[in-house]
């Protein structure tokens, strides 16, 4: 594993600044690693600071005497991270959910995984939630889903004879008692939206979402930011980080330029810049051009039209 953009030292560096309480010092965690000649990763630097205080700075004396220690971070070891447990706990609270509908329909594809970000054990996670919470949340999710799937009248979790959990949905139908279907028959969009609605209410740490717009109708997508902000109201607010290609997602007029990061791939690697650092973006916005259009034009591949002649 190495940084392709680097000329001399292809180390990977990860730096995270965490502000847990508003009026308390910031934590900073830095990890720099590379791979040795056998292709195994080793740590070149691990540093933790709390404000001006340095809590950890490796390699330390013990690391230099015993280099094998550099194959493990102090962060991941409970007895080594005591001085900065808050940082470890913070990372532990980060959630990533990217439902792959096929994995929910056929959980055998991802046997044995727990906390699978792709949804392999999503139904087990719902089943494992305290019943009162589970029922309340599914009720609210059904009410929200009704927007996109108006015929869905009920939603519940059941277990079959093998103990395997299933999500059942009752669809309004000419049959007076409706028709029950389980997750095998839900559409991709329904499953992804369901996953999204569950994920935003589960946990309180930062939530990472990859292209939440997939399989959804543009009219549904454009209200996702408003759904996020209504969830984030008040003390229970959590940070939500979203990657997207969708113009519809960026239509909401409340999305701040300081909330949008523009990723521009180049020969020297991808450059990440906040949208408010581009003077032309601000000017276009003030001139009445929608943010979605501005950002889409800024990030579009230069010669996408070449795709059209692929067949020739």
């Amino acid at each position: 594993m190495r940084s392709l953009a680097a000329r001399h030292r292809p180390d990977i560096v990860v730096r995270v600044r965490i502000s847990i309480e508003e009026d308390e010092p910031e934590w900073a965690y830095e990890l720099r690693f590379a791979q040795n000649r056998q292709g195994r990763p080793f740590i070149k630097k691990e540093k933790v600071t709390y404000g001006d205080e340095v809590k950890l700075d490796r390699p330390d004396v013990d690391d230099k005497k015993d280099p094998i220690r550099l194959t493990q971070t102090y962060l991941e070891q409970v007895n080594a991270n005591r001085e900065f447990r808050e940082v470890a706990d913070f990372f532990g609270r980060v959630r990533y959910l990217h439902i792959v509908p096929q994995l929910i329909r056929e959980p055998e594809r991802s046997v044995g995984r727990t906390d699978d970000p792709f949804g392999g054990d999503f139904l087990e996670q719902i089943a494992g939630t305290v019943e009162r919470t589970q029922k309340a949340r599914l009720k609210r999710i059904r009410e929200a889903l009704e927007v996109a799937v108006p015929q869905l009248k009920e939603l519940e979790l059941t277990r079959d004879d093998n103990g395997t959990p299933h999500l059942r949905g009752k669809y309004e139908h000419w049959r007076p008692h409706g028709a029950w279907q389980n997750e095998e028959h839900f559409s991709d969009g329904t499953l992804r939206l369901l996953g999204l609605l569950w994920a935003v209410r589960e946990g309180a740490g930062p939530l990472l979402l990859k292209e939440p717009e997939l399989s959804l109708h543009p009219e549904v997508i454009r209200y996702i930011p408003a759904m996020f902000s209504s969830i984030q109201r008040g003390a229970r607010g959590r940070q939500i980080l979203v990657s997207t290609h969708s113009e519809d997602l960026l239509q909401d007029k409340g999305i701040g330029l300081d909330e949008v990061l523009v990723l521009e791939p180049g020969k020297e690697g991808t450059v990440v810049s906040p949208a408010d650092s581009f003077k032309d973006i601000k000017a276009l916005l003030e001139g009445g051009i929608p943010l979605s259009e501005v950002v889409s034009n800024k990030t579009k591949p230069a010669n996408a039209q070449q795709l059209a002649i692929f067949g020739k």
């Binding site: 930011p225 408003a226 759904m227 902000s229 109201r233 007029k253 409340g254 999305i255």
Partner: peptide, 16 residues
């Protein structure tokens, strides 16, 4: 109310 650095005319929860 929009944040000072947001560059927008309305706040983040406006639509909702």
């Amino acid at each position: 109310v929009p944040g000072e650095r947001s560059g927008r005319r309305v706040g983040p929860d406006y639509t909702s």
